[in-house]
Design a binder for these strands. Structure first.
Lengths: 209, 209
DNA sequence: ACCCTAACCGGACCACGGTCCGGTTAATTC
DNA sequence: GAATTAACCGGACCGTGGTCCGGTTAGGGT
C-alpha cells in the first residue's frame, strides 16, 4: 500500500514533460494551420500529423476539436479581459462608467468579428474557458449599477451583451450584415436609451426612420 | 431540337409523383423519430431506412441534415408568423403597438424554447427558409416606428431580437439560464426603456440590485 | 402503344470527429 | 541505478454526414 504523501507545496504534479512538449507542439501547429489555411481546413488528423503525434494524443489534451479551438482562443480572450480590467481608459478603469460601457461595446464587437471563425468553431467550449460570457455580462452589470440603472440589472446586462455576441452566429440573419460602424453607433444608442441618457452625445446623423 | 413550349399556366412541373411521395414519407419518418427519440437520434441513414428509401434521396430532397430539420421546423414557423400577421390581439393586429411588442417578445421566447433542439439542429438553414429572422426583425421595426421611436430603428429591432433568439444557443452562458418568467419581464423592461415609456406598467417588484 | 429524355433513385464510397486498448515512457522510491 | 507504477502515446477502428455515378422510371410527344 504505497500511499501518496500529501504534497501541498509541490502542487498536483500537473503534467509530464513529454506531455507538455506535445501540448506546445500541437498548439503551435494548429495556430499555424489556422493562419495559413483558415479554421475550416484544420483537421484533427492534420494537426496531429503536423505535430508529429498520434491522433489520440490530440483528443487526450484538448478533448475535442472545439476544445482545441477554445485553447487557441484562450490567449486572445485573456488579452481582452486584461485590457478591460487593467488597461488604459476608456476601456479600462478610470473613465466615467458610460464611456467605459460604450468602449466595451466597441471593443467586444471588434474582438468578436476578428475572431469570428475561431469562436464559431470553439462553440460552447470557447465560452466555458474562464467563464467568458459571464465575465462580459458581469462587467456590463457592474457598469450599469455604477450608472444607477434600476430594475433587473443582471438580465439587462445579458440582453445588452446579446447583440454584440450574436454577430458571430453563422446565421446570415439580421445583425451579421450591419457594417461595423453602424453596429457601434446603433449599440451606443441602445445603451443610452437603457441608461436613460438619450441626448448625451452624438447619436450621429442617423435618419429618423 | 425539341424546344419546350412556354407553359405559363401549368406551372414549372415542380415535382415528379414518386418524388413527392418520398418527400412525404421522409418528413413523416423524421417527425416520428424526433418525437420518439429526440433530435440527436435522428440520423440520415436511419430516416432513409425508415422511409424505405436510399440515403442519396434524402440529401437530394433536403440538401443536408440541417435542411431536413429546417423543413420540419417550417410548419411551426409558419404557424407563428400567421398568428402574428393574422391572429388575435395582442399578438396579432388590433392591439396598441406596445402591447403587441410585448406579446411578440413573450411569444417568440416561448416558441424558441419549445423548438430549441430543432432550431439548433437546423442551424442557418432554419433561418433561411422564408427569411425567418428578417421577418421578426421587420415586425419589431414596424412596431417601433408605430411608437415613434427615432434613431436607427433597423438596428434597434435587430438588437431587441437578439436576446430572444440567443436563448437557443447551446451556449451554457448568461441568457440561457434565466427562467422564462424573468426573461419575459426583463425583456419587457428593456423594451420600455428603448421606447421611452419606463413607468407605464408593471416593472414587477424586482430588486434594485 | 411506343420511344425518348430528363429527372430520380439507391447504395457504394469518402472524409472527418471521436473512442479504445496494448505497448511505451517518464517520474518516484528504495 | 534498478524496479515500480501511473500516466501517456499512437494508430487501428467506428459512426455519421455528405458525395457520386450507373441503372431505373415517370411522363410527354408522336
Amino acid at each position: 500500500m504505497t500511499e501518496r504523501p500529501l504534497q501541498l507545496l509541490s502542487g498536483p504534479t500537473p503534467e509530464r514533460r513529454d506531455a507538455a512538449r506535445n501540448r506546445e507542439a500541437l498548439l503551435e501547429a494548429a495556430r499555424a494551420m489556422v493562419e495559413q489555411c483558415g479554421v475550416d481546413a484544420v483537421t484533427m488528423d492534420a494537426v496531429a500529423a503536423a505535430a508529429g503525434v498520434g491522433k489520440g494524443t490530440v483528443f487526450r489534451r484538448f478533448e475535442s476539436r472545439a476544445g482545441l479551438m477554445a485553447a487557441l482562443l484562450d490567449f486572445r480572450e485573456r488579452e481582452f479581459q486584461t485590457s478591460v480590467l487593467r488597461g488604459p481608459p476608456p476601456l479600462g478603469p478610470g473613465a466615467p462608467p458610460l464611456d467605459r460601457l460604450l468602449a466595451f461595446g466597441e471593443g467586444r464587437l471588434r474582438y468578436n468579428l476578428e475572431a469570428a471563425q475561431l469562436i464559431g468553431a470553439a462553440g460552447r467550449a470557447g465560452r466555458r474557458s474562464a467563464g467568458v460570457a459571464s465575465f462580459s455580462a458581469q462587467h456590463i452589470a457592474f457598469l450599469l449599477r455604477s450608472l444607477d440603472v434600476g430594475g433587473d440589472v443582471g438580465y439587462l446586462a445579458a440582453a445588452l451583451l446579446a447583440p454584440l455576441e450574436n454577430v458571430v452566429l453563422d446565421d446570415p440573419a439580421t445583425l451579421a450584415d450591419y457594417p461595423l460602424e453602424r453596429s457601434i453607433s446603433g449599440w451606443a444608442d441602445l445603451v443610452r436609451r437603457v441608461v436613460g441618457r438619450v441626448g448625451d452625445a452624438d447619436t450621429g446623423s442617423l435618419a429618423r426612420d
